[in-house]
């Protein structure tokens, strides 16, 4: 029964399925017959669309991971939480100032944080969510932006928050405020834009436009690649 050994049992929303050993949760679900229209994006662990909650046998703790990155284990119980319909403020970034007042105006509930640390424990990106929210709560926009930089917006933090805070949207606002109003402008970019406007690259573009496909391909293959 070689085949039997290579299969494991998992429970998707409580129903048992036999799926191949060693595949990701996403592959396993597709093997079991699920077809993803939403809740699946890049399949590479970057987009955050496939947040999944699971529990291993013998452990009361819930764990999380991205379905496209987490390998199934025998006896695993799981369900996807690919989207969380949490509060999301709309704003015109140009009109905002990078202050605590701005965060509070859009997300006053952030001050309800109890410090339970559930958000940090569940974050599949292993971000210090509670700590970046603490920075936000004292108006330290730069720290909140930096600490939340790797957030995928999966929403699992909000799903666990007893204070009903939307950590990932607060962090998004902090990063936007930081990027637009705090971080120094990229001077080299501004210089380059000026150069383009002044026509410095017109001749070169013209030359490229006139090249045939083979010539372009040769040029492309021989391009400089950053180490």
């Amino acid at each position: 029964m070689a085949e039997e050994k290579e299969m494991v049992s998992i429970y998707i929303m409580g129903k048992q399925y036999r799926v191949p050993y060693g595949v990701t949760i996403m592959k396993a679900m597709e093997y079991a017959g699920y077809r993803f229209i939403r809740g699946c994006g890049c399949r590479g662990g970057f987009c955050g669309a496939c947040g999944t909650v699971y529990r291993k046998p013998g452990d009361f703790r819930l764990k999380v991971g991205l379905a496209c990155q987490t390998v199934v284990e025998d006896g695993m119980h799981l369900t996807q939480i690919p989207f969380y319909p949490a509060n999301k403020a709309t704003y015109n970034l140009e009109e905002l100032t990078p202050t605590l007042a701005t965060l509070l105006r859009h997300y006053p509930e952030m001050t309800r944080c109890l410090g339970c640390n559930s958000c940090t424990r569940i974050c599949p990106q292993e971000l210090q969510v509670m700590d970046y929210m603490a920075a936000a709560q004292r108006g330290d926009i730069a720290k909140a932006a930096h600490m939340s930089f790797d957030c995928l917006m999966c929403g699992l933090c909000a799903s666990r928050c007893p204070a009903e805070i939307v950590q990932y949207n607060v962090a998004l606002l902090a990063r936007r405020l930081y990027g637009r109003h705090v971080a120094p402008r990229a001077e080299h970019l501004a210089r380059r834009v000026e150069e383009i406007k002044a026509g410095k690259f017109d001749a070169e573009i013209e030359r490229l436009m006139k090249m045939d496909r083979l010539e372009l391909q040769k040029l492309y293959d021989a391009r400089d690649i950053e180490p």
Partner: peptide, 10 residues
């Protein structure tokens, strides 16, 4: 909300 110290809101 934006005038008072955040400790009052919390």
């Amino acid at each position: 909300l934006t005038e008072v110290p955040q400790m009052a809101v919390t």
